[in-house]
Structure formats: structure tokens, C-alpha cells
């Protein structure tokens, strides 16, 4: 039987995981059209930065900041050297970033070995009846919402955000209006990488920190971004909600394998029947409502 409280916590967990997996990629792919297959490795860099600083003695929050900065720095280097040449070439950017991902994984393996000593999960458990749930993982769903909100505020309410969206919408006109488009692209890419790093930093205490850990996030990230549709932030939120529900519900009933299968089937159905994604549907409905009024 479906246990309601368990299902609620599992949904929050799933929602948080999908949002945090996808947000960095949503910015980079959703806004810039760059298919960044090294997204998982940027998450891994965030996790490694966090774990290494923590093991060197830094308090957890500072260690997480180090993780985010490491991923952002890696993103800066990647953008300046490789990605900026590939903006109008999506297939080429796929191949280049895939190769980059492989190289990064192996480099980390060579430098740091096959695994790191883990950070313990802080904050203990929430007890309810015979069940318990990790407080930390529940908190991550709240953090996910905060990140979404923060990204929304940055991209719609700040000067920088408006310029960034202008650049991405119409590069030539933006440049004609005096915006340094090169710097905008770099900055947006770096923000996407920093968010990926944040995901890695947040999940480092919960997972085994190994060089290949990035691949556990990739499926959720890409599926969420693609089913989310054109509007980046709204799409990610809606996708995480729908996919998270499917995942949590079927996992609760039949186990993790069926939960994954169900989530992916739902994604296929969304893509088949709603080609503009979930946010596309919202836009259409909103458009219809405006026309009627």
C-alpha cells in the first residue's frame, strides 16, 4: 500500500534531486543551446571540491562554497577554450563536451584515486512512527526551490539578467546596443557551471564520492530539461514536479527500478503529446487566456 507520509518525503527528495540535477544544464542548454555532456563532470568537480576542503578541515558550508567556486572556475576555462567556438554548432558541442567529460573523469581518477573519504550526512533524521527520513535530503528540496527562485530573480529583475537574456534572444541587436556579448555568454555559462557545482556540493555528503559520480545525475538532468520545454525556469520546476511524482509514486509501490522506468515513460509521453514541453503548454494556455480577455 502507498504510505502517504513516506510518499510525500520521497516526492520531495525526487523533486529536489531532479531540480538540482537539471538547473545548471537548463541554463546552459535551455538558454544558450549548448549541449553540455560534461554537465555530470562539473557536478563531480563541485563534489570533489567540497569533499577535499572538508577533509582538509574546512567547515561544511565553506567547503561547499569551495566546491561551487571550483566548478565555476572549471566552467570559465572550458568556455574560454572550447565552448565559445561551438555556439552555433550543437552536434559539435555534444562531441567536444562528451570527450571533455571523459577526460575530466579520468584526470580526477589519476590525481585523486578511485574514491575519497566521504563527508557524513549532517542533521540526522526526522522520525515519524516506525519510519524515518533524512532531514538533510528533505532540506535539499527546499534548497532546490530557493535556487529556482534565485535564478528567476537574477534573470528577470537584475540588469545583468536582462542583458543576458537580450544577448541570447538576439545577439546582433544586443551588441548594437552596447552589450558585450562575449562576456555575457561566458558569464551565463559560468553561472550554469556554478549551479552544477552547487548540486555536487549539496549531494557530496549523501553519495559515494567517486570520479564517475556525475553520470548518476545526467539522465534526470537531460530528461527534465527536455520535457520542461522552452521556458527555462518554469519548465524545470514543472518537469521536476511531474517526473518527481511519477518516480516517487512508482518507487513507493514497486521499487527503484520500476520508479525509474515509470519516470522515463512519463517523459516519453510528455514529449510525444506536448512537443513544446510542459512550459510550452503553460505559455499556450496563457496566450489563449489573454486573447479571450
Amino acid at each position: 500500500m502507498v504510505n502517504g507520509v513516506n510518499l510525500f518525503f520521497q516526492f520531495l527528495d525526487s523533486f529536489g534531486f531532479i531540480v538540482l540535477s537539471a538547473i545548471g544544464l537548463a541554463i546552459i542548454f535551455g538558454m544558450m543551446g549548448v549541449i553540455n555532456l560534461a554537465h555530470g563532470e562539473l557536478i563531480m568537480i563541485g563534489a570533489y571540491g567540497t569533499t577535499l576542503s572538508f577533509n582538509a578541515g574546512a567547515p561544511l558550508l565553506l567547503a561547499m562554497a569551495v566546491g561551487v567556486i571550483s566548478a565555476a572556475a572549471a566552467g570559465l576555462v572550458i568556455e574560454r577554450t572550447i565552448v565559445k567556438r561551438l555556439y552555433q554548432r550543437p552536434l559539435d558541442s555534444m562531441v567536444a563536451t562528451w570527450a571533455l567529460g571523459l577526460a575530466m573523469t579520468q584526470m580526477v581518477r589519476i590525481i585523486f584515486g578511485n574514491s575519497l573519504s566521504g563527508i557524513g550526512l549532517p542533521l540526522g533524521a526526522i522520525q515519524y512512527g516506525q519510519f524515518s527520513y533524512s532531514m538533510y535530503r528533505t532540506l535539499l528540496s527546499v534548497v532546490a526551490l530557493v535556487v529556482l527562485l534565485g535564478a528567476y530573480v537574477v534573470f528577470t529583475r537584475t540588469e545583468f539578467g536582462i542583458r543576458a537574456r537580450a544577448t541570447i534572444q538576439d545577439d546582433d541587436t544586443a551588441r548594437a546596443m552596447g552589450i558585450d556579448t562575449d562576456r555575457m555568454y561566458t558569464a551565463t555559462f559560468v553561472i550554469g557551471c556554478a549551479l552544477a557545482g552547487l548540486t555536487g556540493a549539496l549531494y557530496a555528503p549523501a553519495l559515494a564520492v567517486v570520479p564517475g559520480m556525475g553520470s548518476s545525475f545526467l539522465v534526470e538532468a537531460f530528461v527534465a530539461v527536455v520535457t520542461g520545454g522552452t521556458s527555462v525556469l518554469l519548465g524545470t520546476t514543472l518537469a521536476a514536479g511531474v517526473l518527481g511524482t511519477a518516480n516517487a509514486f512508482f518507487t513507493n509501490l514497486y521499487g527503484t527500478f520500476i520508479g525509474q522506468v515509470a519516470m522515463l515513460i512519463v517523459a516519453i509521453l510528455i514529449l510525444r503529446f506536448l512537443p513544446t514541453g510542459l512550459s510550452g503548454v503553460v505559455e499556450t494556455v496563457r496566450g489563449q487566456m489573454e486573447r479571450e480577455s
Binding site: 527528495d13 513507493n252 527503484t256
Partner: peptide, 11 residues
């Protein structure tokens, strides 16, 4: 039975 790629064990 848990797939080899699974990292979330809360359920």
C-alpha cells in the same frame, strides 16, 4: 533488487 546505477536509497 536495486539497479547498479541507483544512488537514492530512501525508499
Amino acid at each position: 533488487f536495486i539497479p547498479l546505477s541507483e544512488t537514492d536509497f530512501s525508499s
